[in-house]
Nucleic acid binder design. Sequence first.
RNA 1: GCGCCAGUAGCUCAGUGGAUAGAGCAACGGCCUUCUAAGCCGUUGGUCGCUGGUUCGAUCCCAGCCUGGCGCGCCA
Length: 556
Amino acid sequence: MNLKNEIATILAHSIAAAVAEGSFQDDLPGVERKVEYPRDQKFGDYAIPFALESAKLLRKSPMEIGQKLAQYMGSDPRIEKIEVVKPGFINIFLSSGFLFKTMKDIIVQGKEYGRARKENPRRVNIEFVSANPTGPLNIVSARAAAVGDTIANLLEFTGDTVNREFYINDFGNQVLLLGRSVLARIRELRGETVDFPEDGYHGEYIRDIAAQINSQYGEDINEIKEESALIDFVAQKAIEYNVKGQKKDLEKFNVRFQTWFSEKTLHEKDEVMMTLQVLQSRGVVFSEEGKTLFKSTDFDDDKDRVLVRDDGRPTYFLADIAYHNDKMQRGYDLIIDIWGPDHHGHIKRLFGALKAMGLTEDKFKILIAQQVNLLMEGETVKMSKRLGQFSTMRDLIDEIGVDVARYFFVMRSLESHLDFDLTLAKKQSSENPVFYLQYAHARICSLFREADKRGHAYDPELARAEYFDNEESQALMKLLAKFPEEAADAAEKFEPHRITTFLMKVAQGFHKFYTEHRILTEDREMSLAYLTLCGAVRIVMANGLRLLGVSAPEQM
RNA sequence: GCGCCAGUAGCUCAGUGGAUAGAGCAACGGCCUUCUAAGCCGUUGGUCGCUGGUUCGAUCCCAGCCUGGCGCGCCA
């Protein structure tokens, strides 16, 4: 149940009734029938600006329109009262009886509270992280992992079916480069003198991979005589090693992908060249100096892009079109990519190509997660795999823990450039916002342990409404009732940070309630009532934290 | 030069076409004989980058400008 939607429905009915009666005209272009949250609680729980926005078209005063609508919204049991105030807002106050009932429902629903079901769930594919298989995952991947997984959680929670996908770029130049780099380190290990490839991967981790492969596949390496075959062999083993490591790190981060999609298989199955043929048949491809190009200038790009080089090798761009076509052919209703800011320039040409292939672009959604500035001691750390300088996701998890890391990456909107001060995150860990949330949960668990010890009964059905006639309880119950719509909004807009903001408010509401009201007392009926409210808060906190992939500890 | 993102409190950032713009941290002052003080209360702190425009109403939308970050490969 999503209250905000239901208020919107009530509004729609009222307007329809007023139209039927002849008070309003039906056709109101540009006037939204929206429901919003007032800034100040004295203006109620929901506010409707419809009267203000439609006044001009209806040629009536906003107050008059508001009164008319309020009349029709009348007698819903969930609504305590409706006020129409200057300049013409319709303010809606939820009834405390409804809030009380909702609180008890929360406890019945437990883990399911906030979850929505859809009559026609969308099949959603969400691709994220997709780091190159040339080394360990870094901080940028960590943000993508946290954000992507949380969005996937939100979509599942609000009724869609979600497939998490990781695209392995195990094809092209970098594979060769990786192979040469690792092979050079293997030869060093064997005491041979080698020139390390200048444009190779210089990171220390290459030596680890080399040692691993040397001990495991030493004999195979001895047997392969041809240099290019050897490089290829080593490269494949290195990729396997890296992907395995990435998978392990991600699992440690509570992220599990259903699909690991290899770029190489696209080429092997000839999907790349078949995609080229489709594009050719659409007449959007031309040749020039032995190269094949896509006429992307016809699709609002600033220049035409090469699909096949003059030596016959396809570009990444062509493979990417084939990949997105492949996803499309798998029958998804919505295909989400989470990309880094350095890829934003690709959107236009990719969409152009997909459009040229006759694919509807409204099924694709590309989200750009802005960059992460990693700071140490207040100074920016530059990250470059080639130069071997970077902080790995593994290091991050070891330093500050999964909970803090996931929370930090998700607490800001996607478009925000994120400053992540490692030193600060570690040092200030006890004053970290994530602990504030977890503390609320742990505190409640502790209360229940204590209640149990003291022999308090806990039967939410027996809780009585009269104990909640105080500011803290009312405020808290209102927040709890809003969890489903917060989750729905966050999912719909792909804005996971809304959940962190919301949970912050719930935790705040709880801590205040806890300070103001003693829960376990001789007044057993009151204790029962308060425990019921605490139980509902615990469920909302736990469900919200679960969406974020952050643990809800029972004690701290 | 073109494109994307950002510019809101000392710092990191939420937020909204509407009513008195918020949080965390930092600073300062209070609150534990009683259920977890990782908490609560209070104080200090703002030209919502600048200039125009649209609107009954703009921090929010539009245009221009300024500043910062990133991108502008036949790398992936």
